[in-house]
């Protein structure tokens, strides 16, 4: 018999034109289940009006980002054991810095517009992904193999970013990381965007994006690297190289 916990889920609820509120549901859970499983259980057995977004349940689609006890999590890979304990109350809220569609669902259209604008790569050669293998262990012919990029476009970094909280114009961590991924030398057309007032200089180095990123993108490091690249590109412009 798997371990059983009694858990109280406190869920943010909001329907169009209604005031927000929190609803609580007490469930019997297996602590090794994921937060998303518990939310889905509320929908299946307690309240069919609950809206939440989810698809792949294994961290490839980026649909199920929520704030769990205030912290952005991809709920499909966050075991209950990692964020709470037996008998506790677990608060689940929608991501910040996006308009709320209903309950735990936000409209991330703005993020997708920015990802399109920077032409973020969805698929890339396996050898270009900064993966655990040291680069030297790739065979030369491996460059022909492609993989889906690390960034799931899940919006967690935007929700956690203190600068994104103050202005929707800021490009934000994921789009800036996507510019860095393509590189200023290969994609000089992205320089004006990266160098704009809503670009790389608006970051205030809070490193929250990297802290919440569920998919190894490390946007903060990429933003810092992009600053170096932008300075390099500007210097090349000045000295005409």
């Amino acid at each position: 018999m798997p371990e059983q916990w009694t858990l109280t889920l406190r869920l943010y609820r909001q329907k169009a034109n209604e005031a927000p509120r929190y609803d609580t549901f007490t469930l019997q859970v297996n602590p090794d289940e994921y937060v998303l499983d518990a939310v889905e259980r509320v929908w299946a057995f307690h309240d069919r009006s609950l809206c939440f977004r989810h698809a792949c349940h294994h961290s490839t689609c980026g649909a199920c980002g929520m704030r769990v006890n205030g912290v952005e999590k991809l709920t499909c890979i966050t075991p209950l054991r990692a964020v709470t304990q037996n008998g506790a109350v677990l608060t689940i809220e929608p991501l910040r810095n996006f308009p709320i569609v209903s309950d735990l669902v936000v409209d991330m259209g703005d993020l997708y517009r920015k990802m399109e604008r920077v032409n973020a790569r969805a698929v890339l050669p396996v050898t270009e992904a900064e993966i655990e293998h040291p680069a030297s262990t790739w065979n030369p012919e491996d460059a022909q193999y492609l993989r889906l990029s690390d960034c799931l476009e899940c919006g967690l970094c935007i929700s956690a970013c203190p600068v994104a909280a103050t202005t929707a114009a800021y490009l934000g961590p994921a789009p800036l990381a996507a510019i860095q991924d393509q590189g200023m030398r290969r994609h000089p057309e992205l320089l004006p965007l990266a160098d704009s007032e809503d670009g790389v200089w608006r970051c205030h180095s809070a490193f929250e994006c990297t802290a919440v990123c569920p998919s190894f993108v490390d946007p903060a490091r990429r933003i810092m690297d992009l600053r170096r690249q932008v300075v390099g590109a500007k210097l090349r412009q000045v000295f005409g190289k």
Binding site: V101, G109, Y112
Partner: peptide
């Protein structure tokens, strides 16, 4: 795939 969202015209309200 991103254009599914960018073409969206749902009513929005900020929380």
């Amino acid at each position: 795939y991103r254009q599914y969202y960018t073409l969206s015209n749902q009513e929005k309200h900020y929380a």
